[in-house]
């Protein structure tokens, strides 16, 4: 999964990087299912591997992007990015390794089968009802914004 995630960034061809993004998302949903989060895993496949990837591929083919030629890589920014991400990784590993929680395994669940969707839904509509409706308004605003942006006359 991490390999395909790296392939997204490294590939010169946008379509190839989009397809490796699909594989990376599928691996991520398998990880979610292995962590007993079945609802999130299904949502991941539906939303990302379904909707978002179709959107990406559609836009790539609409804009007719080719595999780009190798441009001059700005080594200063590249080295800066590698330095920041590597130092962050080392720091996180050090912090996690120094805690007691890193040694102990995952605690066992009460029962292997649980009503995942039911529990998430109950929590969503009882404790998080207001954020849920705010999200609904956000999606509506995003839809209207996309329609306005896609109109032929921009100004």
């Amino acid at each position: 999964m991490i390999g395909f995630g790296a392939a997204v960034v490294i590939n010169r061809n946008p379509i190839a990087s989009a397809l490796s993004l699909v594989v990376s998302f599928l691996g991520l949903s398998v990880l979610f299912v292995l962590l007993n989060a079945f609802f999130i895993g299904v949502i991941q496949v539906l939303v990302y591997a379904g909707a978002v990837m179709v959107l990406f591929l559609f836009i790539i083919m609409l804009l007719d992007l080719r595999a780009e030629k190798i441009r001059k890589i700005n080594w200063l920014t590249f080295g800066g990015g590698v330095f920041v991400s590597l130092s962050l990784l080392i720091q996180i590993l050090a912090v996690i390794g120094s805690t007691k929680m890193a040694k102990q395994p995952f605690p066992p669940l009460a029962s292997p089968r649980m009503d995942d969707v039911r529990n998430v839904g109950l929590l969503l509509f009882e404790n998080y009802n207001l954020p849920f409706q705010v999200i609904a308004v956000l999606v509506l605003v995003a839809t209207i914004g996309v329609i306005v942006l896609s109109k032929r006359e921009l100004r």
Partner: peptide, 11 residues
């Protein structure tokens, strides 16, 4: 590593 991508879509 986001600095590698040249296309906006890849970013």
């Amino acid at each position: 590593m986001i600095t590698l991508g040249d296309y906006l879509i890849v970013i």
